[in-house]
Amino acid sequence: MLRFDAEGIVAVRGFDHPEVIRQDDDFEPVSVWEWASGIVEEYLRVFGGPEQLAAWRENRPYVADVTA
């Protein structure tokens, strides 16, 4: 849930997130999907494997091999 206060601060589920705080009067709106997908891509770039990142970018499922 997104809530905007009078100062343009966005609260996401009760927490202020610095990446969604907008105080400019001149900005392009960003959808929640654009914002969230950027975070997921950054996470996969840092912590995921190349196959995971490629699958995310190509919008296809990725299932990791399970080894015992």
Rank of each mutant, 00 (worst) to 15 (best):
L2D: 03
R3P: 00
F4L: 15
F4H: 08
D5S: 06
D5E: 09
A6W: 00
A6K: 13
A6P: 01
I9W: 03
I9H: 04
I9N: 11
V10C: 10
A11I: 00
V12D: 03
V12M: 08
R13W: 04
R13D: 15
R13F: 07
R13K: 12
R13A: 15
G14Q: 04
F15C: 05
F15G: 01
D16T: 14
H17S: 04
V20T: 08
V20A: 05
V20H: 00
I21T: 11
Q23V: 12
Q23Y: 01
D24K: 05
D24T: 12
D25M: 07
D25W: 03
F27S: 10
E28L: 08
E28T: 10
E28K: 12
E28Y: 02
P29T: 08
P29R: 04
P29Y: 01
V30R: 11
V30E: 14
S31Y: 06
S31Q: 03
V32G: 03
V32F: 10
W33A: 15
W33H: 13
E34G: 00
E34I: 01
W35C: 08
A36W: 02
S37L: 05
S37W: 03
S37H: 04
I39S: 06
I39T: 07
E41T: 10
E41V: 00
E41I: 05
Y43K: 01
L44M: 13
L44F: 11
L44W: 03
L44T: 09
V46R: 12
V46H: 11
G48D: 03
G49E: 13
P50Y: 00
P50S: 11
P50E: 15
E51R: 13
E51P: 02
Q52F: 00
Q52A: 15
L53S: 08
A54K: 14
A54M: 07
W56V: 04
R57L: 14
R57C: 06
E58N: 14
N59K: 14
R60C: 10
R60S: 10
R60M: 05
P61D: 12
P61V: 05
Y62C: 01
V63Y: 07
V63W: 11
V63I: 14
V63A: 13
D65W: 08
T67K: 10
A68N: 11
A68H: 11
A68E: 10
